[in-house]
């Protein structure tokens, strides 16, 4: 449909910087942190199902999966911050403008990813408190 776009030139393209940021990076910024949360919940639940029972939990497995989740969160946050820095000039104003108006499609998605990563980073950290609070189930020593 090469005939269709010319009329649209009457208004500015919603994503002037769309070629400056590969789509796979936007996708990573959006999905890494939620994936870390999902992985942490589901796998931790499966591993911890017998933690306070007879068999005991796989401490190494639990620690590993939570470390992986933390690593994914850090990468996700880093990617989304980098994405936002790359696109923040796409629309007028500072981060407050993108917060309230969402101008610039690439910048919007980058900022969306940044906020998503922040929320899910917090979620992963709060989930970690389960292990810290319930450490007796894992056979870890208690504080005097």
């Amino acid at each position: 449909m090469s005939d269709l776009p010319p009329l649209v030139n009457a208004v500015s393209h919603p994503a002037p910087l769309r070629n400056d940021l590969p789509r796979w990076r936007i996708v990573l910024g959006l999905v890494l942190a939620p994936s870390a949360f999902a992985l942490q919940v589901v796998v931790s639940y499966a591993l911890a199902a017998d933690a306070c029972g007879e068999g005991g939990a796989s401490l190494i497995g639990l620690a590993a999966i939570n470390l992986v989740a933390l690593a994914l969160i850090i990468v996700g946050l880093g990617t989304s911050i980098a994405n936002y820095r790359r696109t923040r000039s796409e629309g007028e104003g500072s981060h407050r403008a993108v917060q309230s108006q969402g101008d610039g499609r690439s910048r919007f998605l980058a900022y969306f990813g940044l906020c998503t990563s922040g929320v899910f980073a917090l979620a992963v950290l709060v989930q970690l408190t389960s292990i810290l609070v319930m450490h007796q189930c894992l056979g870890l020593p208690t504080l005097p």
């Binding site: 942490q40 919940v41 931790s44 911890a48 017998d50 306070c52 939990a57 989930q127 189930c137 894992l138």
Partner: peptide, 26 residues
Amino acid sequence: GVWVHHMFATGLPTLAMSFFSAASFV
């Protein structure tokens, strides 16, 4: 990620439930 909070009274292991408790707060 919070479906188990409807099942807190079913006798699931405490550590397992605590993950869903945390998610329910979040």
